[in-house]
């Protein structure tokens, strides 16, 4: 793995390996001393062209827990507001010796361009690009689902296990959601079954080609007893005017597609509720649902740090390009 640009790039074995590594990283975060020396001397640049709280803080925490140096860059207050291009920004970062660039950009494909244009030699991690991909979010969702739903709900070791047989409903603004796109691909890779639930106006053209079934009715979808419900944020900033014509009114959206106490009660006992955050309380999810014991939304944030530690470790720790030493060769597992 050289870069992490899309959830679709991960093979089943790679995806499970990331989750297993994340589990070991999570175990280190329960210790008194949470910091590990693993990436000492490496530099990670957080290149954020779009607003973000949890993803940026999560990557920053992950990099710092692994002892990497972190440089935070946000477009606001930088030379980008003076008109600097992505290329020149990337060349600047390269000159400063960035070993990894974590990029969030409003344009789909910006991380791919950064990784393949030769502007930077570091590893590129996609932290969300436009309406395209958000692979670390999908990985942390998969990790959260595995912890709760695989192996007798956390009582047995889940190392090496995928999500085979699970049924996940992804509900809401699929059209604008990179989280949904990444999750559909990754959950499929890991063997889970996905149902997308949204009004027709919030489903993208060509959704029938995705490896998922589509439903327009949330109550029908919940009646099929999914193991997990993933609520998506209604991305009003990507809709032109109030509602943007995607749905008649917020109240009507809530009636049709909001998760409230009544719908929560129809779920199977073991089912969990996920939300990538930030939540619009009262729109796609009611306070009852968001604060219920089934909601694992706060845990998703904690798992995000472990998953991002795992991704940074797997991308940065080993380096096949340097000369291999033979010392301790007897210890290298075959």
């Amino acid at each position: 793995m050289r870069h992490l640009l899309s959830a679709a790039d991960l093979s089943p074995a790679q995806a499970v390996h990331v989750l297993d590594t994340a589990a070991q990283m999570a175990a280190t975060q329960a210790r008194e001393i949470k910091k590990l020396p693993t990436l000492r001397g490496r530099t990670v640049v957080n290149l954020f062209f779009e607003d973000s709280t949890r993803t940026r803080i999560s990557f920053e925490t992950a990099a710092k827990r692994l002892s990497a140096d972190v440089i935070n860059f946000s477009a606001k207050g930088s030379s980008v507001s003076k008109g600097e291009s992505l290329k020149d920004t990337a060349l600047t970062l390269q000159a400063m010796g960035a070993d990894a660039v974590v990029i969030r950009h409003q344009a789909s494909g910006a991380p791919h361009t950064l990784a393949h244009a030769g502007w930077t030699s570091g590893a590129v991690v996609n932290a969300g690009d436009g309406m395209h991909q958000h692979p670390t979010q999908a990985l942390l969702d998969a990790y959260t689902l595995r912890r709760h739903l695989v192996g007798d709900r956390g009582t047995t070791d889940t190392t090496g296990r995928d999500l085979a047989g699970l049924h996940v409903a992804i509900v809401g603004d699929v059209l604008h959601s990179r989280v949904a796109r990444s999750n559909v691909q990754l959950l499929r890779t890991l063997g889970a079954r996905v149902t997308l639930v949204a009004p027709p106006t919030l489903l993208p053209v060509g959704v029938h080609t995705w490896p998922a079934t589509v439903s327009y009715d949330l109550d029908d979808a919940l009646a099929t007893r999914p193991d997990a419900v993933m609520m998506l944020r209604v991305q009003r900033e990507r809709m032109s005017s109030a509602g943007g014509g995607f749905f008649p009114s917020p109240l009507e959206y809530t009636r049709g597609y909001g998760l409230d106490a009544r719908r929560l009660a129809t779920l199977p006992d073991h089912a969990v509720v996920l939300h990538p955050g930030p939540m619009n309380r009262g729109l796609e999810i009611s306070a009852d649902a968001a604060d219920s014991p089934r909601a694992v939304i706060v845990e998703q944030v904690a798992n995000g740090v472990a998953v991002r530690m795992a991704v940074l470790y797997l991308l940065l720790a080993g380096d096949g390009t340097r000369t291999t030493r033979t010392t301790d060769e007897t210890k290298v597992p075959a």
């Binding site: 590594t21 340097r322 030493r325």
Partner: peptide, 14 residues
Amino acid sequence: MHRDDLAHHPTRTI
């Protein structure tokens, strides 16, 4: 995660 030769080998499984 405490090894000093991480950069000299392919990524090790933790």
